[in-house]
């Protein structure tokens, strides 16, 4: 990847260090949009190591980041107008929070980078500023024991860095709290939409093929007609689970994501069946409600992974009941629908 974000190279006590821009170029914005759509997401990297922002010296603060370029970009943009160092850890291109969960943004890697890049020679203080969510993988007291550096946990969001530095390096309760606003959720929807990947073509194709089956053998006309409407129903269920449920999350009753998804799947499914299903038999309608409800419910349940407030114990409890029901309902729905092809 070209380092278009590097403006020049400066000489320091530890040798040459690349200075980075604090303004996003058009390319950065374009890349951000692409990566939000999961394009090249797993290979969007920054080389680990030390970078300079502004005109840093031996007294400047050191901010720690992950080598997922989106994380790095948010940090350098937040440091606009500040003279600072950035130390990028090797998190295999994963963001701070997820990498901390896996341990790659962790004590061991941080300790390694501190000695590898001679950080104690770069600055004459003993402070490192980490994003708060890095605390999932980094143990501040172990870093202190092993390197002498004091870890200060900054705000959750990079955009709060300026007020954080301004108020003497104490994150306010509001800066420490992780939110999950409508905008946060909207940003995640492209990733959710791309979740299905090739199944998005495979499953509709299967429904098209099966739609032609009937008591007289095979009808291409039926395949197009029934197949087309089937794909519409599947799409509605997919959007219910991947887009509408995440968007409306706080306003949909019940705490379980699977139930939230089921409700939306049935509401939208009910509407679309009402509008298009005048020729459907009651068995077909029931079959479709079972399939659409479970698909939407399953996809909504997967949004737990993107949310910022679900616990492992909670998701395990939810899935114990929901996953078998989703599988059974889908199974009955598909069998029911195939049988109705022959009635």
């Amino acid at each position: 990847m070209t380092k278009h974000y590097v403006t020049d190279v400066i000489g320091t006590a530890i040798g040459s260090v690349e200075r980075v821009s604090t303004v996003w170029s058009r390319l950065d914005i374009l890349q951000t949009i692409r990566v939000r759509w999961s394009i090249g997401r797993m290979n969007y990297l920054v080389t680990p190591g030390v970078y300079a922002v502004g005109k840093p010296d031996a007294d400047s603060n050191i901010f720690i980041s992950a080598n997922f370029k989106l994380s790095f970009d948010h940090l350098r943009r937040a440091l606009h107008g500040i003279n600072a160092w950035i130390l990028v850890l090797d998190t295999k291109g994963i963001n701070v929070w997820c990498a901390a969960g896996k341990g790659t943004f962790g004590t061991k890697e941080l300790v390694h980078r501190i000695s590898e890049h001679h950080i104690s020679q770069l600055v004459n203080h003993k402070k490192l500023i980490l994003p708060q969510l890095g605390a999932v993988g980094v143990s501040a007291f172990e870093v202190k024991d092993q390197t002498g550096f004091k870890v200060i946990y900054g705000p959750v969001e990079a955009r709060d860095i300026k007020p954080f530095v301004g108020t003497g390096m104490e994150a306010t309760p509001a800066m420490r709290k992780i939110n999950f606003t409508m905008i946060d959720r909207l940003k995640l929807i492209p990733v959710e939409l791309s979740y299905g990947r090739y199944y998005l073509l495979l499953i509709p194709a299967i429904f098209f093929i099966l739609s032609g089956l009937n008591i007289h053998g095979y009808s291409v006309d039926a395949a197009w007609q029934i197949g087309g409407i089937s794909v519409l129903y599947l799409l509605v269920a997919y959007l219910s689970g991947c887009v509408i449920t995440p968007m409306l999350l706080p306003w949909i009753p019940f705490r379980r994501f699977s139930v939230k998804g089921l409700i939306i799947g049935w509401i939208l499914g009910g509407v679309v069946l009402y509008l298009t299903g005048s020729l459907l038999t009651i068995f077909e309608i029931i079959s479709w409600l079972l399939m659409m409800g479970s698909l939407s419910s399953f996809l909504a349940m997967n949004f737990t992974g993107s949310s910022t407030f679900t616990s492992l114990s909670g998701v395990q409890k939810e899935m114990k009941l929901s996953l078998p029901l989703q599988i059974i309902a889908t199974g009955i729905g598909i069998i029911g629908w195939i049988i109705t092809r022959f009635i």
Partner: peptide
């Protein structure tokens, strides 16, 4: 601790 994520489970 662990991932509160259905896909992960």
């Amino acid at each position: 601790s662990g991932v509160g994520c259905a896909a992960g489970i």
